[in-house]
Amino acid sequence: MRHWTLTYSSQTQALLWLPMILLALVLALIGVHVFDPKARRWTWKALAVIGVGMAVGQPFLALSWVPPEKYMGDTGRILYVHVPQVWMALIALTLNFGASLAFLLKKSWVSDALAEASAEVGVLFGAVGVTLGALWAKPTWGAYWTWDARLTTAAILLVVYSGYLALRKFIEDPEKRATWSAVVGIFAAVDIPVLWFSVKWWRSMHQTQSNPSTVDPLMTAVLRYSATAFLALLAVFIYQRFLVASAKRNEEVALPEALPAVGGTP
């Protein structure tokens, strides 16, 4: 087993900057996408290319290039996917809160479709992230599941937003669906920090796992690289899901005026 040292060649030192440059590129593309509607034809494609390309390289970096973690050994490599996945879930769900709030302030199908897209993608990333956390916990803590504040809150967060998605499926009227799910989205988002603290206090005698404070720069670089890859994919997923949701919304809104009620009026 190789172990890391804190001295690197200047070549490696230079390489450590690469994730930050890629991150800046991805953020710039997302910015252009958001603020320039005309650029949206190509920005998502560029993001997709970057995201898929980086995701293909990610296992090589995380599974072989980076040396095993000092305390956790090779199991620590799960963290290079687990941590960014959970970060992305949090970004998506924060976006859902923003979209819900925006809808209640000013009704618009754009914010409704964005809320739908971000919640679904957030639940996807969150579900994968939590499962990866459980996979990491088994060899590290000896059990897939422990009463840990972070774990419990994450699991409940998933249940809350699964309920949100179920609600969206159960209401036919698009305007009612948009309003009600926005209300539920705000309740859910406000509840999450509250839940986090309450669960922490509930079992405050159990200390949560503390991380080693000295993190090797190589590991930070790989973590940042993975997060950038997932961020690009997240942006593409949310945008594509948003297009699906908006198209569906347009169909729904157009229908009642275009067609008479099926079977005539009673």
Binding site: I156, V159, V160, S162, G163, Y164, A166, L167, F170, I171, E172, K176, W180, V183, V184, F187, A188, D191, V194, L195, S198, V199
Partner: peptide, 23 residues
């Protein structure tokens, strides 16, 4: 109030409510 107007309200209410009530 939300669930009473949706389809499958008996499923929806506990599904939405229980996790939010946890704290």
């Amino acid at each position: 109030a939300i669930a009473s107007n949706a389809r499958a309200r008996d499923v929806l209410l506990p599904l939405l409510l229980f996790p939010v009530l946890l704290p």
